[in-house]
Amino acid sequence: MNFLDSLRSQFNDHVAFRERRPGIQQLIAPLFYEDGDMVDIYLELLGNGGDRVRVCDFGMTLMRLSYSFDVDTPNKERIFQRILSENQLREESGNIFIETDMASLYPAVLQFAQGVAKVGNMRLFKREVIASLFYEMLQEFVEDHLGEYHPRPNELPLPDRDDLEVDFLLERNKRILYLFGVKDPTKARLITISCLEFQRKRLPFKSMVVHEDFEALPRKDRTRLTSACDKQFPSLDDFRDNALRFLEREVEA
């Protein structure tokens, strides 16, 4: 029994093979992407008469991914390499592959299919998806790391102004800080109005703003917010790195 027959048998005859080029078989298996296209899996016999097989995609996974998502930044490349590493896959010039002996071909094919599916799902890391998680991630950090400041979410400093809400009120040593998260111009303008009104009412507080992406805000919104609030963190990463040190200085002053 050759290795293709063995693999077909292990799949209970639910697969077939098509020779796409001399020595290169495409595995026809009931594994499909969300758009209905079959997952691209090719088998290539390695060496002369050896029993090593390369399971690969000849770049098809990254090609499909590139319709809507490019691995074009160091961060994305890092995530891509991590997915490969964790699934014991390798990559050369865009070709994702795993090499195995014939006896282990069946589990290798399943492992490969699982791994390339995860690579394909990197499109879920697109900016708009990550941006939609910004407030959840901010809340998670506040709850996990700022407990000593007794965070109170959705606080209304002026009871008669339920339109002016603070994302988190922090308090320690009788010092009060209002923490806001910003990911779009609308929220930036609301925070500007809120901070100015709180100041007009002479409330005792310091304001902190955490941006999803400071540079993405229109210039005028950045200017107005900078004038109205006391401290800004240009990104969530910057907030995570520096919030504790800043807060300690603020409450000890």
Binding site: I28, D37, M38, D40, M60, Y67, A131
Partner: peptide, 25 residues
């Protein structure tokens, strides 16, 4: 792809493919 102006994400309206493999249908 259609790129909506009022919500995130694109919608693939049409995609011409070669015979790269089978389709679930």
């Amino acid at each position: 792809e259609y790129v909506p102006s009022d919500e995130p994400g694109n919608i693939v309206l049409l995609r011409f493919n070669g015979p790269h493999g089978e389709h679930v249908l």
